[in-house]
């Protein structure tokens, strides 16, 4: 059984919801990424989304754009991100890691080589924002060949038949984008999200995570009430940005602990 499924099964038995923070690999510098990943787990993360920096992050708002720029200023490459996961796995063999980013760095490495290396270092799932299922046949076959979960997005604009098509291709969990916009955008509409999540659940037994727009403990708690997982991206990255390199690890751990407490309360 995959690590992702194991974690969601355990949470379900415990009647708890998953907390999935996102950080960009290499932000604020490459040395801090693995300590930050451990801090996320210590704070109470169930699964980590690790962003692969890209020069043209079209689906991201200013906060995650800046994280990508900071990482690229340190010349962090996809192969370095994979090494970071290998380092993380030396002391954490349980927490699932999902790589999230854009397709081109993977295309440049080749899906076969990338998938093989992901399996070796202990990556569990891959989400490429700009590769919808229609364009993912090679990605899908290489990822699944190496027991990696291809994770796909659904959005407020996705109609019923689109939901059906996407859930068929997805593994691990469904990432529901809570609003029309880029990461870190305006406040989400919880009633609307609840309706959409229910509609997705009607089509799949996969867990449904909700992200884009979870800004604080209150929204995290509210989202946890209607979804299986809460994804916290821009807010986590913002904490790193505001903390400076000295305090980033401690502050991020504290933030995640607060969100964890809110979700479990």
């Amino acid at each position: 059984m995959s690590r992702i499924q194991t974690v969601f099964d355990q949470l379900k038995q415990q009647g708890r919801k998953a907390l999935i923070p996102f950080i960009t690999a290499g932000d604020p510098n490459p040395q801090l990424t693995v300590p930050l990943m451990h801090a996320l787990v210590e704070g109470g993360a169930d699964l980590i989304e690790l962003g692969v920096p890209f020069s043209d992050p079209m689906a991201d708002g200013p906060t995650i754009q800046r994280a990508s720029e900071r990482a690229l200023a340190h010349k962090v490459r996809l192969r370095d991100v994979l090494e970071m996961v290998a380092e993380f796995r030396k002391s954490d063999t349980n927490t699932p890691v999902v790589l999230m980013g854009y397709g081109n760095p993977i295309e440049a490495m080749g899906w076969d080589k990338f998938s093989e290396r992901c399996a070796e270092v202990g990556v569990d799932g891959v989400l490429t924002v700009d590769f919808p299922p229609e364009e993912s046949s090679e990605a899908f076959s290489q990822l699944t060949k190496h027991q990696l979960d291809p994770i796909f997005l659904l959005a407020p604009t996705s109609a019923q038949e689109r939901v059906e098509a996407v859930v068929k291709a997805a593994r691990g969990f469904i990432y529901y984008v809570s609003l029309r916009g880029v990461t870190g955008a305006a406040n989400l509409d919880l009633v609307d999200v609840a309706g959409k999540v229910a509609a997705i659940r009607g089509q799949t037994s996969l867990p449904v995570g909700v992200g884009f727009g979870v800004r604080d403990a209150a929204t995290a708690k509210a989202v946890a009430a209607i979804a299986d997982a809460v994804v916290v991206g821009s807010r986590t990255v913002q904490e790193i940005e505001n903390s400076g390199e000295q305090n980033a690890v401690a502050n991020v751990k504290k933030l995640i602990a607060e969100l964890r407490a809110a979700i479990d309360s």
Partner: peptide
Amino acid sequence: GGIYMAETLIPA
């Protein structure tokens, strides 16, 4: 060619 876009824009 193709359609390499984020899910939100696929319906658009």
